[in-house]
């Protein structure tokens, strides 16, 4: 029995691509791409070397942040960011709920499904910053453009995930509600809402967190918030103020994550 197997070679079968030819082609292609990509990155090493000094100053500024000298700008930027975050999340989620329901194949009729999916695709395709540029051009500088940007992005994000959730529900429960003779709103309320609600709340909190982080960015293109303050501080090489702002952002994100995990536990 054991002699029959003696001397038999064993090699691990390939994990992903079975054919040896395609495997070499794929790996070789990736290697060539990497070599090309790295070779076309032009770097001014002298400039980078000079930059190390500034990098060190930033690290120092981060460790010894200066909240005081620009506190007025910082506090106003933060207030704009936070209010923008709250309002845009609320409005975005409220609008995302009907669109998300409309984009779920198992509850919506075809034309409505296509319409809602189109809205979602439109909202998800472009970076918030690009959307913000357009809203600033239309609505003028300031947090209102930022609010619209974030609300618009929230719609795509929330509606897509909500639609996927609704498509994944346990159909038997919805079936049972339908069998009682329930109307469409009753079906949503009894058959679907209980199944998707905890995750919807969790996702809304997550989106709140994302919106705050994004609100720090769109200020760079003029849509209000802490981003504008940060941009100015970095432009003036005031790394200690910049460090203070970044620390505040990190702290707020940490606080948001910490509290949202509590809320999530409480909802379930």
């Amino acid at each position: 029995m054991s002699t029959a197997a003696a001397g038999r070679r064993w090699r691990r079968p390939p994990v992903l691509i079975q054919s040896r030819r395609t495997r070499w082609l794929v790996y070789g292609g990736l290697l060539i791409y990497l070599a090309l990509a790295i070779s076309t990155v032009e770097v001014n090493w002298l400039r980078v070397y000079e930059g190390l000094d500034r990098g060190w100053r930033f690290a120092q500024g981060f460790l010894a942040p200066d909240f005081v000298s620009r506190w007025k700008d910082i506090s106003q930027g933060l207030a704009e960011s936070l209010t923008m975050t709250v309002t845009s999340t609320v409005v975005g989620v409220l609008l995302a709920v009907p669109i998300g329901i409309g984009a779920a194949r198992n509850v919506a009729p075809m034309p409505i499904y296509l319409f809602c999916r189109a809205i979602i695709a439109l909202s998800r395709t472009f970076q918030e910053v690009i959307v913000a540029i357009f809203f600033v051009a239309m609505f003028g500088f300031g947090p209102f453009a930022g609010f619209l940007t974030l609300a618009f992005a929230t719609i795509g994000f929330m509606a897509k995930l909500l639609a996927e959730d609704i498509e994944d529900i346990d159909e038997a429960q919805a079936e049972a509600v339908r069998a009682t003779g329930a109307s469409f709103p009753q079906l949503i309320n009894y058959g679907i809402q209980p199944q998707v609600m905890p995750r919807l709340i969790g996702l809304s909190l997550y989106r709140l967190d994302i919106n705050f982080r994004e609100s720090a960015v769109i200020g760079i293109v003029g849509a209000g918030g802490i981003g504008a303050t940060l941009n100015t501080a970095i432009d003036r090489y005031e790394y200690d103020s910049a460090g203070a702002i970044l620390l505040l952002i990190i702290l707020i994100v940490m606080a948001a994550e910490y509290s949202s995990s509590h809320v999530r536990g409480w909802v379930q």
Binding site: N44, V48, G55, V129, I220, I234, M254
Partner: peptide, 25 residues
């Protein structure tokens, strides 16, 4: 992890451009 997640890549880029100059790097 949380520091890296909190700060958007555009802000990192802003910082890095001001440090090591504009460019792909």
């Amino acid at each position: 992890i949380v520091a890296s997640r909190s700060i958007n890549s555009l802000i990192w880029a802003l910082l890095l451009v001001s440090m090591i100059g504009p460019g792909l790097l």
